[in-house]
Design a binder for these strands. Sequence first.
DNA 1: CCACCATACTCAAAAAAGTGAGTAGTCATA
DNA 2: TATGACTACTCACTTTTTTGAGTATGGTGG
Lengths: 189, 189
Amino acid sequence: MALRHAVLAALLDEELSGYQLAKAFDLGVANFWHALPQQLYAELARLERDGLVTGRDVVQDTRPTKRLFRVTGAGLAELDRFTASASKPSFLRDDLAVMVQAADHVDAGRLIERLTERAAVARAKTELFGTLLRTMRGDRSEEEFLRHGERIGPYLTCLRGLAFEQGNHDWCERTIAVLRERRAARAGG
Amino acid sequence: MALRHAVLAALLDEELSGYQLAKAFDLGVANFWHALPQQLYAELARLERDGLVTGRDVVQDTRPTKRLFRVTGAGLAELDRFTASASKPSFLRDDLAVMVQAADHVDAGRLIERLTERAAVARAKTELFGTLLRTMRGDRSEEEFLRHGERIGPYLTCLRGLAFEQGNHDWCERTIAVLRERRAARAGG
DNA sequence: CCACCATACTCAAAAAAGTGAGTAGTCATA
DNA sequence: TATGACTACTCACTTTTTTGAGTATGGTGG
């Protein structure tokens, strides 16, 4: 159950409400741990019940009252304990790969459509991650930032996300090229 | 619900029993769709109920009787329909990345241990995938195989798996180097 | 002024995935 | 001769994830 640890890790830098956490997740943590807002609200409630985070209500004039959470000492200890335990292998879970596995038995044109869509999504994500990385390191070079920066965890996970999406993009393009060439060869021969 | 489509895709080439399917999954399909044997048995039963696969009992002398499944016409149609639908974005789900996200707040030594373990696993998988790819293409070059091979789906998904594990490996090594350098700088300064 | 989007959540339920144990025979290894 | 590993499954259970709604208010664009 790493969702709870992902939430703790996301709350390390800032005090956030469930709503803000959901946004932060979408932007950062979702690269390696996707979760829906409902899960986050539920998890925050459990974490508070277990004393790993504390919440406080913040009344706002124009917006509804929100509840901000921050990690407690017990929460930090829990994260540390988590790091000491063996990590499960990371899984890729990909609809598109299932389709490609069946490539020789399904319509190639439609498969190329799906791959093209995915390539575009992957491209957009790499650009987003590039921007995020530049924002995090400010005017420092990556080497310099990673050597002396204060908070490098999110930067390092963002690097993984970037490489992952570049991998997605490259694979889509390569697969599209292969499928097109085979279609052309079949049409020509 | 792509497990059912992953199972269909895995059964395209060969008639397999649940047990064999579990093995085949571990070796190939698990790269993009992990599932436990129990899930596969249950899914095969559902697929047969729905007419997307048919099973036949094979009595063996020394081994228990097994039930072999193959994809039906309806199963192929279902796969084709699946390919026509939009694919969901692929998610990375990684314990280790959660730990790295918290890198600045947890014990660096233990994190390096986890990363080292993962790097080794990733390395082993890249070697396995390399072997698998060579086996699939036989004595042909990759270009040649992808142009004229009969069954390229599994090859293409294996390429994705290879790149993914190489990405894992590179990221682990890079992250280890960064953490070590920071630790050294802290100890020295 | 009305639709729509953003904030800030909650609730219920279904579906999917994972955990743990058990059955039962065969074969190799020590 | 027992120990464990492999074939080939099944069953029960829990946890996790997803789906789909619903509440309530305030601001923005046309």
